[in-house]
Structure formats: C-alpha cells, structure tokens
C-alpha cells in the first residue's frame, strides 16, 4: 500500500496475466432518459483474478451496481466488452450466483425449495441436490431451517438463504450487491465472518465481486478493494489488502485493517466523495 499514490492508471489495474477470470476492457454505461443522458460508469478496464475476493466501495450512484449487472450480462455495456474465462459476455452469464440487498425469496416456497429454485429454473431435477442444499444451509448457520418459510425468518436468515441459493450450483463467480446493508450491525458482523469462511472453504473455485458502502467490511473481506469515484464512476484506486486469513473481525478497528480503512477514506476525500465543511479550512 502506498498512501502517496495518486489515481491509479486504469490500465495498471488490469495486468493481463493468464489467471484472470473476468476482464473488463473499456466498459462504460450511459443511461438515456427523457431529460438527457447520464453517464453511470466511465470507461473502465479491470481484471478480476481467479479465486480472489474483490470488494468494491464507492458512494451512491457511482456505478457499482451497474458494474455488477454488466459483468453478469444482465445489462449490456454501452461501450467496451466484458469477458469471463475469455468468452465474451453478451447475454446473462449462467455460471454465476447473485445476491442482492434484498433477499428476494419466494414466499410460497420453503427455505430448501428457495435454494433448489436455482436448479428448477435451469430445468435440472432438484431432487438429487437436496442433501447438498441442506448441508450448504447448515454451513451458513441455518441448521434445521430448511422446512421453514421466508415469513418465519429474520432478515439475516433470509440473506443467508439468498447466499445459499447463489452458491448451490457451484458457480465460479459470486456477485454480491450490498447483500448485508439491510440487516442490523451485529448480524452484519456475523454474516461477514460466515462469508469469509464460505469463501475460504471454496478457495480458488470461487471468485467474488462484493459491492458495499461499508469501508471496514470491504477491507475485512477483500483480497483487493476497488475504490470508486462519484458519478460518473471510475476506478480511483485498487488496493491490495495484504492480511492473512482467516481475518478476525475483532481486528477491524485495529492496526492494519484500520490503516487500510483510513487510507480508503483519504482517497474518498481526495476524489470528492465527502462534502467539505466551511470551518475545516479553505482548501477546496
């Protein structure tokens, strides 16, 4: 980490080693509305390494979610191209799992059937996968909950089911869009720790793109943290989080984790994420 580094050259963030799962080349998104066009994401080039956990932090409206939907192939970029495993993404990419801020569980299905939906929608008989789904739910802290219905679950439990649904088909890529921002702080801590465990268990078989507003969470979970500027979003900086795993959440406020978080806040300040108070001095 070099706190003195300026805005990283976007090209430098995409070393073209053969071990990248996802590559973005000049990907940009412009939305056209009745009132004109809005650039949601400036041309961005980026490589997500196989097996890494990439956190993305940035202010609201900086195009983080747009980035995710374009990688998933759900929304086409206005310019540039996304490749996964070398293949051009020009339709919804099927070997990924997605978890959103809301769990979007189906209320008429039990927890287990919500997880197995992943197979049913793909036209695969879910029956042979039941045991695996129950085991996955257990590993996510939902022992004995597979027969419950969503209305019987707390917000944190629903989010765990949504993560299980995103992982049950063993995707190579897990895309998470602020999955913990609707739960209380303590549940959020627990979910972060559990997610770290799940990702460690899967090792290089699972690559994660994790979008959040929460700086400490991004540092705690990420192998790298991608820091974004306000709209039109571009990459301000990509930071390697050089800390051994398993990381302890107890250390979030201490030493290295805290130093990384402080560095990200400095970057945010520099790129204008924070509004300056007048009495703070006439710098800008």
């Amino acid at each position: 980490m070099d706190p003195a580094a300026g805005l990283t050259d976007v090209r430098a963030a995409s070393p073209t080693t053969g071990d990248d799962l996802v590559t973005l080349d000049g990907v940009a998104k412009t939305y056209t509305t009745a009132t004109g066009t809005t650039q949601a994401l400036s041309p961005t080039s980026l490589a997500i390494r196989r097996g890494e956990f990439l956190s993305v932090v940035g202010p609201s409206g900086c195009g983080k979610s747009t980035l995710l939907t374009m990688i998933s192939g759900l929304v086409p970029p206005t310019a540039g191209e996304v490749r996964i495993d070398g293949e051009l993404v020009d339709r919804p990419y099927r070997h990924c799992g997605i978890a959103f801020q809301t769990s979007v569980l189906l209320e008429w299905r039990s927890v287990l059937d919500n997880v197995l939906l992943q197979f049913e929608m793909r036209g695969i008989d879910p029956a042979p996968h039941r045991d695996k789904a129950v085991a996955l739910l257990d590993s996510l802290g939902l022992e004995g909950s597979s027969r419950l219905y969503p209305r019987e679950l707390s917000g944190g439990m629903k989010q765990r089911v949504s993560i299980a649904r995103a992982l049950i088909h063993d995707p190579s890529l897990l895309l998470m869009d602020e999955p913990f921002s609707a739960v209380d702080a303590l549940t959020r801590d627990q979910l972060s720790m559990d997610l770290q465990q799940v990702c460690m268990d899967r090792g290089r078989d699972l690559t994660v793109l994790f979008i959040t507003h929460h700086i400490e969470e991004a540092v705690f979970l990420g192998d790298r943290v991608l820091v974004m500027t306000p709209r039109p979003g571009r990459i301000a900086e990509v930071i390697d989080i050089d800390l051994p795993r398993p990381r302890r959440l107890e250390d979030a406020g201490r030493e290295k984790q805290a130093a990384y978080a402080a560095h990200i806040r400095e970057t945010f300040s520099r790129v204008g994420v924070y509004r300056r108070n007048q009495h703070e001095g006439g710098q800008a």
Binding site: T69, S72, G73, L74, P92, Y93, R94, C96, I98, F100, Q101, T102, V104, L106, W108, L117, Q118, E120, M121, R122, G123
Partner: peptide, 25 residues
Amino acid sequence: PPELRMLNRSMGASRWRAFWKISFP
C-alpha cells in the same frame, strides 16, 4: 421486484418456466 427479474434471467429460465414458477405465483 427488479431484483427478482434479474435473478430470474441469470438462472437462464425459459419464459414459460419463469412464468409458472415465479410470475404467476
């Protein structure tokens, strides 16, 4: 909800299956 629609499409379901398994219920 739009998230459910996106999830739907990412699971690659046919319109017919998406209708009977998700939209209709």
